[in-house]
Structure formats: C-alpha cells, structure tokens
C-alpha cells in the first residue's frame, strides 16, 4: 500500500478541512490537545463493526455506521463523518465497506481499516457461504427452487425500492434524468460492457457537473 505510512504527513501538511483537524494520529495521540477523541483499540474497532455486520439485516448499513461513529462511540465528529461518507461514495466499491475502511484508517491506520472492514463483512460472509453451500448441494430440489423464486421476486422489489429511494431526487432533474436514461440505454439496451458505459458517460457527467455548474 503506497500511502500506508503517511500519518505523520497528515499533521505536517497545512489542512483546510475539518476532517483532518479532528483526526487522531500517532503524532498527536500523546499530546493532550485533543481530549475528545480517545483512540480505540483494534479489537474495539473490529468488535463494533462486527456487531453492525451481524445485526444490519435488510440494508441501511451506513445509518448503523453513522450511529456508531458519531453517537455511540463518538469516534468521528459529524463534520468529519460527512466528509468521510462523501469520499466513500465517490470511490468505487461498496459505500458501507469504504466508510468502514476510512473510519478505521482515521482511528488506527491501515490495521484499523482492516479491522473495521473485516468485522463488517465477516457475519454476512459466513451467512452467505453456509447458505450458498447448502444451495449448491440441494438447489435442484423443487421446493428450494420455488422458495428461491419467491425470495428472488421479493428481492427484485427491494432492489427497485432502494433504487427509487436513492434516485427520486434525480429522476425529476433534467440533467440527472438524461444521465440516468443514457446510462440505462447504453447498459441494458445497447448491451455495452460496463467499461465502455463508463468511458462514455463519465466525461459527459464531469462536463455537465463541472465545478461552477448547478448540480
């Protein structure tokens, strides 16, 4: 990891955003200027995210993480949480996993990031593996098949509702709607591969939403 050891640089560089100023780093952890944030141990980070990974049935993981980080443990300020969330949404990968990585990184560096992400994914990973092995062994049984057919229909409804909830603000804006429809048509109608869809759409999006433009 190329940037693994730059914690010292963080405090040495002039900082313009709130995120970095509330960050606890090895160099200031020993000074008493930051009484609010107590650096948690790796086990604490792992355990708290493991808890979220185990109870967050039905989605909404970012909301659980928000409660943990801002309210329950107060590991991040509300401002730095929002900044961290924005980055985790901008970068590829699952938002909830990215958020766990970045929060763990701010608390305990690379190992903290690993502890948070592993904790978050361990319960669900174990669940799908056990169920998946059972499915691979007996998936052809007629009752299992109809059960999964019903579950799949429900899952389609869930995916549609998540898409609607996230997208409803965008469906009514002409610029966003254009981007959404164009992406959908390229992907689902023209059957372009995802790489090509992004090669076409990202530059258009960056132009339409360039700094200074109304979103």
């Amino acid at each position: 990891m190329p940037l693994a050891m730059n914690d010292a640089n963080v405090t040495a560089t002039p900082i313009s955003n709130d995120t970095a100023t509330t960050m606890t780093t090895p160099s200031d952890a020993h000074s008493s200027k930051d009484p609010v944030v107590v650096r948690p141990t790796l086990w604490q980070i792992f355990f708290e995210f493991l808890l979220i990974g185990a109870v967050s049935f039905g989605g909404g993981i970012v909301a659980y993480e928000r409660i943990l980080l801002i309210e329950k443990r107060q590991w991040l300020s509300a401002d730095s949480f929002m900044a961290t969330l924005a980055i985790s949404q901008t970068m590829p990968g699952l938002n909830s996993v990215n958020l766990a990585l970045l929060a763990g990184d701010q608390l305990r560096g690379t190992m903290g990031a690993l502890a948070a992400a592993l904790g978050l994914m361990l319960p669900g990973g174990a669940f799908v593996l056990v169920v998946g092995i059972a499915y691979s062994a007996g998936g052809q049984h007629p009752f299992i098949n109809v059960l999964l057919a019903g579950i799949a229909a429900g899952a389609t409804g869930l995916l549609a509702s998540v898409t609607y909830t996230i997208g409803k603000r965008h469906f009514v804006q002409i610029k966003s709607l254009f981007m959404i429809v164009a992406t959908f048509v390229l992907m689902s109608m023209f059957k372009l591969s995802l790489v090509w869809v992004l090669i076409v759409m990202v530059p258009i999006g960056l132009y339409l939403y360039r700094p200074g433009q109304q979103p």
């Binding site: 560089t13 313009s16 900044a83 924005a86 995916l159 997208g167 981007m179 959404i180 999006g205 939403y209």
Partner: peptide
C-alpha cells in the same frame, strides 16, 4: 484528507451519482 475538500471532488461525486443510479436501474 491531506489536500482538503476541492470543488472537483464534488463534481466527480455529482457526475457519478446519476450514472450509478442509471446502472442500478
């Protein structure tokens, strides 16, 4: 976190949001 919030980060996020919604569709 080192360079701070820049206008282009917001632009990237704004551009990617509708694309990812289109992909979700």
């Amino acid at each position: 976190q080192r360079i701070g919030e820049r206008p282009w980060r917001r632009a990237v996020q704004n551009a990617l949001e509708p694309i990812s919604i289109g992909l979700m569709c």
